[in-house]
Amino acid sequence: MWWHPNFVKVRDHAITVLFLMGVFGAWEWLYRSNLYPPHLFPGPSAVWPALVEMAKSGELAQDFLASSFRWITGFIIGTVLGVPFGMICGRLKFIRMSIGGLLNGLSSIPKIVMIPIAILWFGLGETQKVSLVAWGAFFPVWLSSMEAALHTPRELVWVARSYNLTPLQSALHIFWPSAIPHIVAGIRIAISTATFSLAAAEMSGAFSGLAYRVFYSHEMFQTDKMMAGIFVITVLSWLVNYAFMKLVKYLAPWAT
């Protein structure tokens, strides 16, 4: 009961669960109300069998593996490039003013527009898809790293100067760690943008993948499978975000 130490925790989880049940309930009610054509807007009771069907036929596993590979590889490449490059842009004015400005412009280009260029450079295989995901993940990480390095608290920089640190020591002991909370925020956004890019990438040259399945099912008017695909992507995005925040809490409790 309320005196129990876990009461607040249990109550908070109960709120989440009740809310989700409400959302699913409303969804199902809308579906059954025939307010929208049921064929175009299947409810949970119609999507679930489609999901089971996809799981049983092995389609789901295949799509999941294909998308995971593209997402994880691209995400790692984008992040690993974005952080140091952003920090450098933040600290070195002439790089920020040249390449930084160009990237800033490029960052607002929708990923879908990049598909023809990605095909031109990387062909139709996995390289093109991974590169698109990396492209999508890069920008928020790059931007947040740059902003963080640009706005390192003045007093911290002064402490570094008082310590007579070398540029490398300053980067390692002051600029990089003080940027981490911003970078964490950037990475959380990158989790979404990488997923957008994955969707764009799977629009062409793909045979499997969660986003490909959504597009294909849509093409075939199989809205139940389409919704199932969207549902899986939603759950996975949530899980990745959750796992990432848990990891941050464990590795850098001060960064959240």
Binding site: P116, I119, L124, S204, G205, A206, F207, Y212
Partner: peptide, 10 residues
């Protein structure tokens, strides 16, 4: 599998 407008480039 591709979208039609991308085929020409490819």
């Amino acid at each position: 599998n591709m979208k039609a407008p991308q085929m020409k480039t490819a």
